[in-house]
Amino acid sequence: MINVMQRRSFASAVSAAAAAPFLLGAAPSDTDRTQSAAADGRLKRDMVAALENELQDRNTARAVAAWIFDIGFDWTPAAAPISEFDFLIAYAFGNRPPANGGDPAKVLAEPGPMNELLADVVARIRTKRTMTVYAQWEIAHFLKTKYNMSQVIAIDPVIAEDGTITYLSTDGVAAQVAEQRKSNPGGLGTAGVVGWRDHIKRCVLTTEGRGMTALAPEGFTMPDTYDPESGQPWTRRRDLYLVHDMNAQWGMMRTELISRMYPNG
C-alpha cells in the first residue's frame, strides 16, 4: 500500500501538474515549459514508486504509470498554426432535448449552447483563413444560421427508414470525414481539429486513427463551460465528463496495446 509520505508527495506532484496551463490559447514561456516538465517528471516518478510498492513489480509499474499519466494527466493535444491545415473538423459536444418534446429516438435533438460556442471558435479561425469545414451537424447548424458560412459540410446522424436516429460517435464522425476525403487528389490531408476543451485530445487521436494527420489550432482557446441542461448526462458537468473521456481513451489504448503486442492475434 502507499504510505503517508508517498501520498503527500504524490498529491503535491498532482497539484503542480494540474496547475500547468492549457497551452492552445497562448504560447508558453521557456519558464512555463521548464516548470511544467519538472512537475511532470516528479509526478511520473511518484506514480512509478507508488505502483511499484503496490504491485511489487517495477517493470509493470513503469509501463502502467506511463499509460495512467497519458490518459489521466495529459489533456493537451499536439497543435500547429492554422497555415498548416488543409481543412477543419469540428466535433460536437452535448446537445439539448427536442424543443417540442416527442420520441427522442425519432425527433432530432436541439444543437445546444455548447455547440454554439464551438461554432464560434470555427468562425474565429475562418476569419484568419478560409478552408473547408467538416462539422458535426450540431455545429454546422450554427455555422450556417448564425454565420451564413460557406464551405461547410455537415456530418449528419444516421436516420433509418423507420425514422430512428443514430447519433455518430467521435469515431463515427472521423470515419465519415475520412471517407469523404478519399477522393481528394492530395490524399486525406492535415486536419485542424476543433473540439471541447476536455474532448479535443481524444478528437485529435481519433482523427489520426482514421488516417488523417490531425492537430489542434494554435492560438485558439477551446470552450469549457458545461451545460447542466445537456441532453447527454455525461456532458453536464466536468468531473463526470472526464471519467467518460478517460474510459473512452482506455478503450482506445487497450485496442492499440493488444494490436501492438500481439499483432498476429
Results as ranks from 00 to 15, higher is better:
E256Q: 11
A109Y: 15
E229L: 15
G163S: 09
F87G: 01
P113D: 06
P113T: 10
A109I: 08
P233W: 09
W196D: 02
V122E: 08
L24Y: 01
K128C: 04
L23H: 01
W250G: 04
W234S: 13
D227V: 07
Q176T: 13
M253F: 09
I165E: 08
I125F: 02
G231S: 12
M253R: 15
M47C: 09
A123W: 06
P77I: 03
K44Q: 15
D162S: 06
D30S: 14
V4Y: 12
P111I: 04
G265F: 03
N100Y: 02
A99R: 11
A37M: 02
N115E: 09
A66D: 06
D74K: 07
D46A: 11
V107S: 09
I125P: 02
G192W: 00
V121S: 04
F69P: 05
F142N: 07
G112I: 07
G187W: 02
G195R: 06
I200G: 00
P98L: 10
L118D: 00
A50T: 11
F73V: 04
E161L: 10
L43Y: 10
D245N: 13
H141E: 11
Q35H: 13
K128E: 14
Y134V: 07
G195A: 15
A37E: 13
P77H: 03
N115I: 03
A160R: 12
A109V: 14
G211D: 02
F87D: 07
M1Q: 02
A65Y: 06
L215R: 11
G251Q: 12
L24K: 01
F69L: 07
E229S: 13
D120L: 11
F93K: 00
K146P: 07
T170A: 01
A20S: 14
T34W: 08
E52K: 03
W75V: 03
Y147F: 07
R96T: 11
A63S: 10
G189C: 00
L215V: 04
D70K: 06
P28A: 00
G41D: 13
R238G: 10
P77F: 04
P263Y: 00
A178M: 12
T170G: 00
V64K: 07
A16T: 08
Q180V: 09
N53T: 11
P113W: 02
P77C: 10
W196Q: 08
A154S: 15
I159M: 03
P217D: 07
V107T: 12
N184R: 12
D74M: 10
S259P: 08
S29M: 04
I125M: 13
R33Q: 11
V121H: 04
G231M: 12
A175Q: 10
R124M: 11
D46Q: 15
L55S: 01
A39L: 08
M212T: 01
D239I: 04
W67K: 12
